[in-house]
Design a protein around this nucleic acid. Structure first.
Lengths: 227, 227
DNA sequence: CAGTGGTCTAGACCACTGA
DNA sequence: CAGTGGTCTAGACCACTGA
């Protein structure tokens, strides 16, 4: 059973996405909607406020509420932990540790950092090559963690609470080292996902994951069915 | 001046992201927060409800509100129209029409489709190669549109209201044709952005954009600064 | 069964801003 | 300056579910 405010929100979402309400068209005022739906102002306000938050409606004081013009496709992209994502697809995930070293302080990284190279495998086949730096100042416990069974990403997800993150997605040709580790020919096209995370403006980790093309893609949706 | 409910929301966001409140830790009840902030229940409810919507907090009846465990990094990726994005970066955008034809009905596309090949240029340099199919059944007016000045993407954004969309991001080596059009060597790594859009479950357009690697990247953020 | 969150009401005051 | 949306209050009833 959905709430009345959710029904009002869905009504207008449907009418906007169907084109019945065109961009720049004015929606009824909250007063009119109160009469139409026989409910209090807070209930219609919640519905219109949610549409405004979604970017489907622009609300302006005195002027009213208007169907927004589509400008960008803002897409919600879920980037889960690789181990979780592979497991959800019903495949077996393994992480093979390739190298591990501790580096001293650098301009980018105050304090010592743990540098980890590893390979993600899905059902035994190479999925992605990962190079990660972790600040031991931010996460000292990681020095003694074991990555033969658990990937550094999974470890961090389980041991470090919420962080701020920036993700960059690009393409690149595999370097000689990357090609060798992934079983590709040199310069083979790859998808590169790079993520930096912080806690309180202090860097926690920086990871670069290289996926052979045609082996991985990111999918995002926008629309009423998508939520 | 921010509202009280927004301040409450930010207080808890900060405390969660800083780690002061650890995953699974219980937050105060709405009753306790009413006393603490000297406000009504609706005000604290709005704040906690927003945190729940953001995924930072899990709320369960009778049990209470708890800091959520980080699982995925859901990242909001804005994929604007290329012309608008280039212009925003202070560069000049041009679209060069390479081919245009009308195809008859196919299994994938009921009704005739308009097929457009073109090249996006930023300050005169190739930015992306685009191949697009548009359903003339859904958008008959497009048959007579002029794409020497405006790209098909900009035209659609201006003439077709909200759609549902699915975006896929992957990497691929340039085909011979793509390489020639973009001035690359064959098999050069490229970022591929593919988007399908619908209105009322009827396909509107399908576009595949190929960006030379190192020429383009997608950036998304998660965190308190990001909103 | 009692505590908690989800929703709603009927009112209020206010800031903003377009007619 | 009057219409509109933003926020808040003090209450209510209810569904859910863990102690």
């Amino acid at each position: 059973m959905i709430s009345l405010s959710e029904r009002i929100r869905q009504d207008f979402e449907t009418r906007i996405l169907s084109g019945e309400l065109a961009p720049d068209e004015r929606l009824p005022t909250e007063q009119q909607l109160m009469a139409q739906y026989q409910c209090s102002r807070m209930t219609v306000h919640k519905a219109l406020s949610a549409l405004s938050h979604m970017g489907l409606v622009d609300r302006r004081k005195k002027a009213g509420s208007f169907v927004a013009r589509p400008r960008v496709h803002s897409m919600v992209l879920d980037i889960p932990d690789l181990a979780a994502e592979v497991a959800q697809g019903g495949r077996r995930h393994d992480f093979r540790l390739l190298a591990r070293q501790i580096r001293s302080s650098s301009p980018d990284w105050p304090g010592r950092t743990l540098c980890i190279d590893g390979l993600h495998l899905a059902d035994g086949a190479p999925l992605a090559l990962e190079r990660r730096e972790v600040s031991l100042k931010a996460v000292p416990e990681m020095r003694d963690a074991d990555f033969t069974t658990q990937s550094p990403g999974s470890w961090l997800l389980a041991h470090v609470p919420w962080t701020e993150a920036e993700t960059r997605i690009s393409a690149a040709g595999a370097t000689a080292d990357e090609a060798a580790a992934l079983g590709l020919s040199a310069h083979a096209p790859c998808l590169v996902v790079e993520r930096r995370t912080w806690r309180q403006a202090a860097p926690v980790t920086h990871v670069r994951q290289v996926f052979p093309a045609d082996n991985y893609e990111l999918v995002g949706r926008f629309g009423p069915s998508g939520r």
